[in-house]
């Protein structure tokens, strides 16, 4: 039982292929069919979408860094300026936006730390340190440093 459906995209191969320059070779050679990556290729698979979201965390990182510097600048402008700044920040729209930025930062942290054992290969006493230990150590460092920051800035 057969039925056929046409594929809308696609194009017969171009003569740019290396062997195409040799007419003797290409005379009897079939023509290649090449598929082209759509511009939204990162929607094709969930893993690719996750990848592009991971890459886009560069923007929350950028924003958060600029925010910290901005806060230092506002602090240098005196208490009145800081008061206005704080009022803006406690506006629900700003809070919602900043919560979103925080989600982006956390996504960056989690994806970054999860990939550490791929890039780091450690040997201790001649034995390879297993991946879970490398990830665990990084998460430990993250929680420890976050604890120190929260204690200094908000704990007292």
């Amino acid at each position: 039982m057969k039925s056929q459906a046409r594929i809308p995209t696609g194009r017969i191969s171009d003569p740019g292929y290396p062997q195409a320059s040799n007419p003797e070779y290409t005379r009897h050679h079939p023509r290649w069919y090449r598929r082209h990556m759509p511009i939204f290729w990162w929607l094709r698979k969930f893993a690719y979408t996750k990848f592009i979201l991971r890459e886009l965390t560069s923007q929350p990182v950028m924003y958060a860094t600029l925010f910290l510097l901005g806060k230092v600048w506002v602090l240098s402008r005196g208490p009145e300026a800081y008061e206005i700044f704080v009022q803006w920040l406690s506006h629900p729209a700003f809070l919602a936006f900043h919560a979103l930025v925080l989600v982006g930062l956390l996504f960056h942290t989690v994806t970054w730390l999860n990939l550490t054992p791929k890039a780091l290969v450690l040997r201790v006493a001649g034995r390879k340190v297993p991946g879970w230990a490398i990830v665990g150590a990084h998460y430990g460092a993250w929680l420890g440093l976050s604890g120190v920051i929260l204690w200094i800035l908000a704990g007292r």
Binding site: M1, Q4, A5, R31
Partner: peptide, 13 residues
């Protein structure tokens, strides 16, 4: 390539 020249999907049971 020698036939219709464009790819298609064929269904087999």
């Amino acid at each position: 390539p020698e036939g219709e020249g464009e790819p298609l999907y064929e269904t087999f049971e």
